[in-house]
Design a protein around this nucleic acid. Structure first.
Length: 425
RNA sequence: GUGGGUGUAGCUCAGCUGGUUAGAGCACCAGGUUGUGGCCCUGGUGGCCGAGGGUUCAAAUCCCUUCACCCACCCCA
């Protein structure tokens, strides 16, 4: 991980990671669970390019977001076009939805994706520059039941992935207008001389940059000030409230526990009404493991007809960091030990015959001594070892050693006489 | 982008206020068992001490720069 091995003068880029076989096994196992769960909930996989026109994110994710303002990997390609490594998946899905005219084919689509995302942030625990997400999008339905479906999917997914007791936090943030009005009201409240004077230095700055953050300040005085501040729900329409109530009722019916956090604002411009986040313990400051919400305006922003939608994205690295998923160790069925040139050459055919039987089989390629080959077989946790030397070739009988029982016997050298069980059982 | 911490063998780490051949455990290789693993014993390979520059008679040790990692802020998956 530190890259402190051989110094070839080449290092991987900051915030990017190599995954070695031991670790990649966990990933493949987790990905299989994600795909199986998605299928169970009726979502089909969509694979989009990891590079898109920069404009897609500027318009989709939103120019006001931190992501677009300071975190994108943006380049000029050979045709002088500005391209960007995707910082999130949703804009690509919506772009594809429009480009492939999906809305004209069916009124409702359930899509999921899984793959790398790129954000040029300062790396720290649970945050890489190339990281991996899976996400689900339900495009078409405006009903609160759709929101419930997505949250239920996220909940099931985290349980299937053995993430210990994730906490669900939900909120309703209304539409763009409501958020703007709330933001303005909050600024007015906080910058009024009496209130402003009691805020800490950080919070005074926050009144300019992100007034909502004052809610999270640990400073006691700031908490006193913010206690009476205007909350978002004051700016919601009746329809917004009904929608939120229906989402909550839906979650209650499914017995999915949640907390309402009226300060939960997500960092993307396009969210409307419902936002939610699953937080896991043990991740330090980056505890959001899955986050999403409704984005009724996004399709239109990207040039399509008004189309409601809900979705979420979940972080693979963070999930794996806390997941209790067991990974079963690989065991090799047969390791073939060859002694001498004749046996060494014969081994390829022996392997082919063993593999033909459906067994996993391997050998040594370094012409090492028997002891070294046995050690290798042990490292690979071989169930059995087939020993082939001059004696065996002459007798047309091979030695078969069962490693666990430390027993061995002779078997016919003719592969057509072999059965799977005598090697693996 | 800002702040703090760390960077010595493949891995985890010792190395006191600068001093001569840089150590341990594990891993790896070999021998003990001239054709047999896991345990044990013995030996061995392996490090321009992250990189570059500076101070000094002398630097892994002090200073600067840079790169990377870690943690936090910001924000998010």
């Amino acid at each position: 991980m530190t890259g402190s091995g051989q110094d070839s003068g080449l290092q991987r880029l900051a915030g990017m990671a190599d995954l070695l076989p031991l670790e990649s096994k966990r990933w493949v196992a987790a990905e299989a669970i994600v795909r199986a769960t998605m299928r169970q909930y009726g979502f089909g996989e969509i694979r989009c390019p990891i590079m898109e026109p920069t404009e897609l994110f500027e318009r989709g994710t939103g120019t006001a977001t931190d992501i677009v303002q300071k975190e994108m990997y943006t380049f000029t390609d050979r045709g002088d076009r500005s391209v960007t490594l995707r910082p999130e998946g949703t804009p690509s899905v919506v772009r594809a939805f429009l480009e492939e005219s999906l809305g004209a084919k069916r009124p409702s689509w359930k899509l999921f994706y899984i793959g790398p995302m790129f954000r040029a942030e300062r790396p720290q625990q649970g945050r890489l520059r190339q990281f991996h997400q899976f996400g689900a999008e339900l495009i078409g339905p405006a009903a609160p039941e759709a929101d419930v479906e997505l949250i239920a999917l996220g909940d099931a997914m985290l349980r299937n992935l053995d993430v210990p007791v994730p906490r669900l936090v939900i909120n309703s943030i209304g539409d763009k207008q409501a958020r703007a009005d709330h933001d303005a009201a909050l600024r007015d409240y906080l910058t009024a001389p009496a209130a402003f004077a009691r805020l800490c230095a950080d919070c005074r700055r926050r009144t300019q940059t992100n007034p909502l953050r004052v809610f999270d300040c640990k400073n006691e005085q700031c908490q006193e000030v913010i206690a009476a501040a205007p909350m978002i729900d004051r700016f919601l329409t009746d329809e917004d409230r009904h929608h939120f109530d229906a989402v909550r009722a839906g979650l209650d019916r499914l017995r999915i526990g949640y907390e309402i956090d009226s300060r939960l604002v997500r960092g993307l411009d396009y969210y409307t009404r419902t936002t939610f986040e699953f937080k896991a313990a043990g991740l330090g400051a980056q505890d959001a493991v899955c986050g999403g919400g409704r984005y009724d305006g996004l399709v239109e922003v990207l040039g399509g007809p008004p189309t409601p939608a809900v979705g979420f994205a979940a972080g693979f690295e963070r999930i794996l960091a806390v997941s209790k998923l067991p990974v079963d160790e690989d065991r090799l069925d047969v390791f073939v030990c060859a002694l001498g040139d004749a046996a060494f050459e014969l081994t390829s055919q022996i392997l082919a015959a063993l593999r033909q039987l459906g067994l996993s089989a391997d050998r040594d390629f370094l012409r090492r001594g028997l002891k070294a080959q046995m050690k290798e077989a042990d490292r690979l946790r071989a169930r059995s070892v087939l020993i082939i030397g001059d004696d065996e070739i002459a007798k047309r009988r091979f030695t078969l050693r069962r490693m666990d029982k430390a027993e061995q016997r002779e078997i016919d050298a003719e592969p057509s006489q072999w059965t799977v069980d005598e090697f693996r059982k």
